[in-house]
């Protein structure tokens, strides 16, 4: 586990097979870069032959209809558009979420503290002092990938995924943080994860419901602060 995080000196566009393109931004993971990604996303959605787009952490996936767009030309166009794209500040709503750190809901908190040579209280303080921004959609509808993790808490993903209880999971991996959706009545109790689970948000709202208007209560650019409910050991 080296814990180093890949950084590109120059932006690049690579092919996702024959289905689309992935633009990866240059430099450290940063908010102004992500604001440019969001701006680029809005612009690319207008292009003919674009089936769908999805921002990642300082990256953008563009799915193309290969019958309507030339993949090689589109790659050049995407890179040019990125270079021209300016950052537009987007300051979304702020959500405050109570977290029970450690205990059964945050099994990995002691290990995270040990990995960094910090006291458990210090990990909790560093985690809850930060303000996080919803950078990109996650593995499914929810609160997305969060940016804002204190550098001192960066930690590599696990080599082998572990089973952890689902429902308001507060976790971290690499330079990223995450807040999981509440457990669904019909859903599984546990799920595999390579992330480190340090706590649980018992009262996190359900962020997405297809039957609700609006479907999602959060948007890219919204901010989250974690409030310490208590630390369990």
């Amino acid at each position: 586990m080296s814990g180093r995080i890949a950084i590109l000196a120059e932006p690049r566009v690579t092919h996702c097979g024959d289905q689309g393109l992935l633009l990866e931004a240059e430099g450290d993971l940063a908010l102004p870069t992500q604001e440019r990604i969001w701006a680029l996303n809005d612009r690319v959605l207008e292009w003919p032959g674009v089936l769908d787009t999805q921002p990642g952490m300082n990256s953008l996936l563009v799915l193309l209809d290969p019958d309507e767009s030339d993949l090689v030309e589109s790659a050049d166009k995407l890179l040019r558009a990125w270079k021209e794209c300016r950052s537009a500040t987007r300051r979304g709503q702020l959500l405050e979420i109570g977290v029970v750190y450690g205990g059964e809901g945050g099994l990995d908190l002691p290990d995270v503290a040990r990995y960094h040579g910090l006291a458990i209280e210090d990990v909790v303080k560093l985690h809850s002092d930060a303000e996080y921004t919803i950078f990109a959609p996650g593995t499914g509808p929810g609160f997305g990938y969060l940016f804002g993790l204190n550098r001192r808490l960066f930690i590599p993903r696990r080599n082998v995924p572990v089973m952890r209880k689902v429902g308001g999971v507060v976790s971290m991996a690499g330079a990223q943080a995450m807040l999981g959706v509440p457990r669904k009545p019909s859903g599984a109790d546990v799920s595999p994860t390579g992330w480190h689970v340090i706590g649980r948000a018992p009262d996190a709202p359900m962020p997405f419901d297809v039957a609700r208007d609006p479907m999602s209560i959060v948007s890219l650019g919204d901010r989250i602060r974690f409030r310490v409910e208590r630390i369990e050991r």
Binding site: S2, A6, C16, G20, P55, T139, N159, Q176
Partner: peptide, 30 residues
Amino acid sequence: EMRSQAIVQGVVQVPPSGQPIVQLADGNSA
């Protein structure tokens, strides 16, 4: 460490175990 990215059907990922995973129709979007 990689940053999390959006992913598509048919991508062959290699987790640290070194044994590939192909993401399919109901796979993760990122």
